[in-house]
Design a binder for these strands. Structure first.
Length: 442
RNA sequence: GCGGGAGUAGCUCAAUUGGUUAGAGCGCGUCCCUGUCACGGACGAGGUUGCGGGUUCAAGUCCCGUCUCUCGCGCCA
């Protein structure tokens, strides 16, 4: 019999169907056994009783996470046995149970709240929990909505390289890779330079790229491998134009996630970020005045948290832009208007106390770019590939970069960014798929 | 890299100022149970207290070293 998805059982009441899925829970009463079966579309209660002795005998052997194919009849539940939620009014009376795969004893119940370390050590299992599926379903929507929002505004998606010939950004620590005979390559710390090159081709370009940072940091906001959602646009007047597009995109993404996943937000006890009428914009100086702190070239984590509290209180927004950082504290390609020196046209976007996006207007003039590179004590020759984009005519442009895991974590109010990565890597954590032979049972 | 906290059963955690045989809940095993939905009930198994050294009549508990986790700072996004 053809498989029916569990989510579609509501329209098959009274009919004989076949479902496939995992055992979520078994409740064994001896002569009557209940199973909660889960597939990608939902869950349903299966009842095994004396009407089908073979199925009942089979059900008594089942354990959590066994994979089954069950044939039976979809019944309305007796009046008093109904529950809230999907399929709460029906149940499948099993006539035949076929085991497609067994599962070993679980180290802990699938939906039990465990410590972060245990959660990540047991990822193949814990990803099956409702909580983890909620997190990564929301994350999938964030990526999808970001992509659609940019496509709708005339941006062309491109694929950025992960292997690069030099550390383009400077600043961030890089992973080295032995590259064939005598070369050294690096894992990209950002798609930035390639994104700018693409402005020359498409005017508006974006990429959703894996990037790598070898920072020896052990915090709740760092990962060694992460996803950056980057866009870059040509023919702008200033960074405010980039910020306006970014704000529109963020509004689309947050609204879409809230709309599609209201149930997940509720289960995770998270509130979708408040968008307010408009994201407030503070210059660094204004921000430091609000904080009552001394002038410094950048904000500290505690400052970021306090500014977010201010933005929510004063503007009903969980987001706040910070602009006008000193040019010296920003990446080399950041544009500085002579009239605005020593401040740059860079900006950060904070969400609930954490920097989730960084952007700027960029230098577009070839000579100015070469001069800035020299000024930063770097060799323009090493940038000759990148510099071709400017040599052959580049419009005034700018863009921004959103950290997917940080964004997901703040949207869902997850305390540690590692929870927003299905397979996080950090100082000590990296999967050893090929070295775990001693943990495999014979 | 610096600082705080932690490491006890498969998981989550207890264990007076050092003191007999290290406990609980969940999970697991056997048995009972025809309306549960975290089903329930009876009984049971399960520990070199991260690792190495030291102090002491006696160490899960105190000291030193080491590894790991976790939180904060630095760096970074």
């Amino acid at each position: 019999m053809e498989r029916t998805l569990i989510g579609a059982l509501g329209s098959r009441v009274g009919q004989e169907v076949s479902i496939s899925g995992w055992v979520d829970v078994r409740r064994d009463h001896g002569k009557i056994i209940f199973l909660d079966i889960r597939d990608r579309s939902g869950k349903v209660q299966v009842i095994c009783n004396a009407n089908h002795a073979e199925a009942l005998a089979e059900a008594s052997k089942l354990r959590p996470e066994w994979v089954l194919e069950i044939t039976g009849k979809v019944n309305e539940r007796p009046e008093k046995m109904r529950t809230e939620g999907a399929n709460g009014n029906l149940e499948l009376e099993a006539s035949e149970i076929k085991v497609l795969a067994r599962a070993a004893e679980l180290p802990f119940p699938k939906d039990e709240q465990v410590n972060l370390d245990t959660l990540l050590d047991n990822r193949p299992l814990t990803l099956r929990s409702e909580r983890e599926r909620d997190i990564f379903a929301v994350q999938a929507t964030i990526v999808d909505a970001y992509r659609r929002a940019l496509q709708a505004r005339g941006f062309t998606e491109f694929q950025a390289p992960a292997l690069v010939g030099g550390d383009a950004e400077g600043g961030a620590a890089v992973f080295k890779v032995a590259y064939f005979y005598d070369k050294t390559a690096y894992l990209a710390t950002s798609p930035q330079l390639y994104k700018q090159i693409m402005v020359g081709a498409f005017e508006r370009a974006f990429t959703i790229a894996r990037i790598f940072r070898a920072e020896k940091s052990a915090t709740t906001r760092h990962l060694s491998e992460l996803t950056q959602m980057d866009f870059e646009m040509g023919f702008i007047k200033d960074e405010l134009e980039v910020m306006a597009v970014l704000e529109e995109i963020i509004r689309d993404v947050v609204s879409e996630a809230a709309k599609r996943h209201a149930d997940a937000f509720a289960r995770l006890k998270a509130t979708p970020p408040a968008l307010g009428q408009k994201f407030p914009i503070l210059t660094l100086q204004e921000a430091q005045k609000i904080l009552g702190s001394a002038e410094a070239p950048d904000l500290q984590p505690e400052d970021e948290r306090r500014l977010s509290e201010w933005a929510l209180k004063e503007h009903g927004s969980d987001f706040v832009f910070i602009t006008r950082f000193p040019t010296a504290s920003r990446a080399f390609y950041t544009y500085e208007d002579p009239a605005e020196a020593p401040y740059s046209r860079g900006f950060d976007l904070l969400l609930r106390g954490l920097e989730i996006n960084s952007g700027s207007q960029r230098i577009h003039d070839y000579d100015a770019m070469v001069a800035r590179i020299k000024n930063c004590n770097m060799d323009p020759k090493k940038f000759s590939f990148y510099l071709q984009a400017f040599k052959y005519g580049m419009p005034p442009h700018g863009g921004s970069s959103t950290g997917l895991e940080r964004f997901t974590a703040r949207v869902l109010e997850l305390p540690n960014v590692k929870e927003a990565s299905a397979f996080p890597r950090d100082l000590n954590r990296i999967d050893t798929l090929l070295h775990a032979a001693d943990t495999v049972e014979d």
